[in-house]
């Protein structure tokens, strides 16, 4: 098994990266942005009542596992997914699939992956990695956020696959069983864009989709009145990290999605998609600008209240631009 071959490519985001790498391995050429777009990966949610290490949960992407599932469904690829009750069963099943020569995708906790720098190792349980072989006791790992392939000891991998918290991976693993002769990207792209617009615009609850951006803007306005300065700074810091640091490709996945729109526009020869891509790039820049100013505000905790209002205004604008963009995209005639 030591001769296992896997073409590892570094990507911005773990799940779309794993999806792209696994499909490439089966001979389907799909870029990371393409996987992200077809899998309708872009999203927004802000859940003030769900505290993640003491700060309100904010996410810029859809829930873990969704991208791989949607991409394979839309391209009619046959996959197998499985969760387990015990680490023993999970590791045994992994060994069996690897022995059959299939690379396997897995959910894991960043905290238990020793090869990652300490700076990134928080209890984040939805990190996707691929195991593509075993050498002696060690597993050969392709982690899409790393420049190169790496290895991990079985005890560490078992811990990472059975981390507790929210969400719990419970040893979740997935692999591709077979691929069709030809795949139709155009239909998949349409379905992906339609779903993205639906998820952004339609949730009637204030915590999900485009509405949540306005909710967060409103909350930020209240931070200086409701929170001690230290807490307000931590809350802002968490938003910045979710937007920029956790493998988003910059601007809270907006650039990644803009790259998808561009690739889709070129593939389908549609100028409107290219135009939307450009617009989303501008919106991504606005998000970066928001993060930049949020960081400035964090640095100087004693800033006067006006600044929080201005910051809220910057975010509000991002929300409005996206609302406008996704509303028009939802009306695209295919």
């Amino acid at each position: 098994m030591s001769s296992a071959q896997f073409l590892h490519c570094q990507h911005a985001h773990c799940e779309s990266g794993v999806t792209s790498n696994l499909l490439q391995h089966e001979g389907i050429h799909i870029s990371e942005p393409m996987a992200f777009g077809i899998g309708a990966g872009i999203f927004f949610a802000h859940l003030p009542f769900v505290k993640v290490s003491g700060t309100p949960g904010t996410t810029f992407r859809t829930w873990p596992g969704a991208i791989f599932k949607r991409v394979t469904q839309r391209l009619h690829i046959d996959i197998h997914t499985e969760r387990f009750r015990t680490p023993e069963k999970a590791m045994h099943a992994l060994d069996n699939v690897l022995a059959a020569g299939k690379p396997v995708g897995m959910l894991s906790s960043v905290y238990y992956l020793p090869y990652l720098p300490e700076a990134f190792r928080f209890h984040f349980n939805a990190h996707n990695i691929v195991a593509y072989g075993k050498e002696g006791n060690e597993y050969l790992i392709s982690d899409p956020v790393m420049e190169d392939v790496t290895r991990i000891a079985p005890e560490d991998l078992a811990k990472a696959r059975f981390a507790k918290g929210t969400p719990e991976p419970r040893g979740f693993m997935y692999y591709i069983k077979s691929v069709p002769q030809t795949v139709n990207f155009e239909r998949a792209i349409q379905a992906g864009i339609k779903q993205t617009c639906f998820f952004m615009l339609s949730p009637p609850l204030p915590w999900f989709g485009n509405k949540a951006i306005f909710l967060l803007a409103k909350k930020i306005k209240q931070y200086p009145h409701k929170l001690p300065p230290r807490k307000a700074a931590l809350y802002l810091g968490n938003i910045i990290r979710m937007q920029e640091e956790i493998g988003t490709g910059g601007g809270g996945f907006r650039f990644l999605y803009a790259a998808f729109l561009q690739e889709a526009g070129e593939m389908m020869k549609r100028d409107d998609l290219l135009e939307y891509s450009k617009e989303l790039t501008t919106i991504g820049d606005a998000w970066r600008n928001f993060a930049y100013h949020a960081a400035r505000l964090m640095k100087d905790r004693k800033s006067d209240l006006v600044n929080f209002d201005e910051l809220s205004e910057l975010l509000h604008k991002c929300g409005e631009m996206e609302k406008d963009l996704f509303t028009r995209m939802s009306k695209i005639k295919w």
């Binding site: 700074a233 810091g237 968490n238 990290r241 640091e245 993060a291 930049y292 949020a294 960081a295």
Partner: peptide, 8 residues
């Protein structure tokens, strides 16, 4: 910006 947030 992100370095600062993480460091914090």
């Amino acid at each position: 910006a992100e370095n600062f947030a993480t460091k914090q």
